[in-house]
Design a protein around this nucleic acid. Structure first.
Length: 567
DNA sequence: CGGACAAGCTGA
DNA sequence: CAGCTTGTCCGG
């Protein structure tokens, strides 16, 4: 028997034929992971097709080894789709769809021939697809449990921590649950609900009956590198192919979600109760230069017995500093770029990374004025302000003091607090990113969850108290942001109104040369080594053109609808 | 990706 | 023209 194998070498986007040694046939099926001899070395690979006609005129080598079970036929097709959808390599996605440790064989609990998902919809009806808006502090377990009651459900969470916690609760509720990727083999056997972080979008689900994405708005669902694949989109495509219902859940649904699936909003009173009480400290009248990071009106919120978490999205000690005696802005001595102060005593260039001691280049003074404080300095001031120890939240540890301060990452680490303070929300509201509003609202939602809804407090210091994000959080009405955002994205031609590709890396010039100027695709950038930006109204037009372009050798960074668009 | 092989560069 | 570098091609 001859099989066709996709090598586990991303740069090789071809399949090759191999002979199956006598007696190995029953261990081989589409998706099986094997080792193959290829160009004088041994590499891994996935069986793409069995019983194929061998390509005439080539010497066929035998497989070297059967390694274990791999993605099913359907998941391999899903990987092919994902490789097109995010202009990535097939092997990249097949790796995601494969177990981390080899699974020798899958003990199917589902009889063969009965692997089709239970068709709940009838032959022609489109399976329901919805976006459920659920307030941040409201449990969504009932949504998952309802889905699980109809059969094997795929549940994707933004983090593995959330997935593990949900898996425990589901098991406690009597739902057979596999945690992806650890329980890959159990998932492949069928008869379980599968819970995991974004890679679970490719989990084996032989009897998929429905999909749920929790916190659909969370950026962690999208891969930050290249390819920029998004678990929400993979799961929706999977549900479409399997003809099963899909539910996206979020306190602040994205335009990507609501532009393709109907939004379902529950009881408004219940939704309001699930958002924290928002206190806005309007700093419009405060003196810009000298009023500091802490408004006097903030002090009452910091006192008391309840835990307080302060969020300031600036690392280090200072972001921008000037000489106190000659008023000159501190700059890099090598490239004269702006410098920041990562720790006491040193400044570092943002552009070239050069470090030097804190000495003014024009007058030699070491006295500095911190124009934009970072977390380290802000912690010192906060401690003086509250008169008790304040810990800076570190990436690995949960703070032990009542009052703590950190970047937004603290909101992922702190389990609960009575009050969350955003010291400078304007940083988020006016961030030079096209998703800034959605991201800022997501931060307020996360804070609402940390403080437990209406009984907790979220305090924001801002010079834009009328900003739509603040109004939305005050009224617990995310549609205020969504509606404004939809208009802006349409006008400014940002996703999801258009499909965008960013092309960078050393191979980008050669790639763009080969890409040409296909109709329906707007091409900008590429001057002086900058990235190219490709925009198309029709997604298929852009993705087909990208897929038809041969990849030149060298590193190529191709990002489809990335979260951040770099200049 | 990584090996094979071919086409260019250098030194005597 | 050997001996080496750099580039292009291709793998079953």
């Amino acid at each position: 028997m001859i099989v066709r194998v996709v090598p586990d070498v991303p740069a090789i986007e071809r399949a090759f034929d191999y002979a199956v040694p006598e007696g190995w046939e029953r261990r081989i099926t589409v998706g099986t992971m094997v080792r193959i001899p290829l160009a004088g070395r041994r590499v891994g690979g996935w069986i793409e097709a069995v019983d194929v006609e061998p390509t005439p005129g080539v010497r066929i080598e035998p497989l070297a080894k059967v390694s274990g079970a791999g993605p099913s036929d359907e998941v391999m097709d899903l990987c092919r789709w994902a490789a097109w959808r995010w202009a990535g390599r097939l092997a990249t996605f097949l790796r995601l769809a494969s177990p981390e440790r080899m699974v020798p064989s899958v003990g199917r609990r589902v009889p063969t021939g009965d692997t089709a998902a239970p068709d709940r919809m009838g032959a022609d009806a489109r399976p329901p697809r919805q976006v459920l808006r659920v307030a941040p502090a409201t449990s969504t377990d009932h949504v998952v449990l309802e889905a699980c009651s109809h059969g094997d459900t795929l549940v994707v969470c933004p983090s593995i921590g959330q997935a593990a916690a949900l898996a425990r609760r589901l098991r406690a509720a009597g739902v057979p649950t596999a945690l992806h990727p650890d329980d890959w083999g159990r998932a492949a056997a069928g008869g379980v609900t599968v819970v995991g972080a974004r890679s679970a979008a490719f989990a084996p689900m032989p009897r998929l009956a429905g999909v749920v994405v929790l916190d659909e708005h969370d950026e962690a669902l999208q891969s930050e590198g290249s390819p920029t694949w998004h678990a929400r989109e993979v799961v929706l495509e999977r549900a479409r192919r399997a003809r099963v219902p899909a539910t996206l859940v979020s306190p602040c649904p994205t335009l990507e979600a609501t532009s393709r699936s109907p939004l379902v909003v529950g009881d408004r009173a219940a939704e309001r109760a699930g958002w924290a009480t928002l206190h806005v400290i309007d700093r419009t009248e405060d003196d810009l230069g000298r009023s500091g990071l802490y408004s006097p009106r903030l002090v009452p919120f910091l006192r008391g017995d309840d835990p307080v978490v302060c969020v300031l999205n600036r690392k280090g000690r200072a972001q921008l500093l000037a000489c106190r005696s000659c008023r000159e802005l501190f700059r890099c001595e090598r490239c004269s770029g702006p410098v920041h102060q990562p720790a006491a005593g040193v400044v570092e260039c943002r552009r070239c990374g050069a470090e030097r001691p804190v000495v003014c280049l024009s007058c030699g003074s070491t006295a500095t004025a911190l124009l934009r404080q970072g977390v380290t300095r802000a912690r010192e001031e906060l401690e003086a302000l509250v008169g008790e120890p304040v810990e800076e939240a570190r990436p690995d540890a949960t703070p032990t003091t009542r009052v703590s301060i950190g970047t937004e990452a603290v909101l992922h680490r702190v389990r609960s607090a009575g009050t969350v303070v955003f010291l400078e929300l304007d940083q988020e509201l006016f961030a030079p990113r096209y998703r800034a509003s959605e991201e800022a609202l997501a931060l307020l939602a996360r804070a609402s969850r940390v403080v437990g809804g209406r009984d907790g407090r979220v305090v924001v210091q801002t010079r834009a108290p009328e900003h739509e994000v603040i109004r939305a959080a005050l009224l617990a009405d995310p549609s205020i942001v969504a509606e404004a955002e939809a208009v802006r994205r349409e006008l400014a031609r940002f996703p999801p109104a258009v499909t965008m590709a960013i092309v960078g890396g050393e191979a980008a010039p050669a790639f763009m040369e080969a890409f040409g100027r296909p109709p329906g695709v707007e091409v900008t950038g590429g001057v002086e080594g900058t990235d190219w930006t490709l925009i198309a109204d029709d997604r298929r037009t852009l993705l087909d053109a990208l897929a038809a372009t041969p990849r030149p050798p060298g590193r190529l960074r191709l990002q489809i609808d990335p979260v951040r668009i770099r200049g």
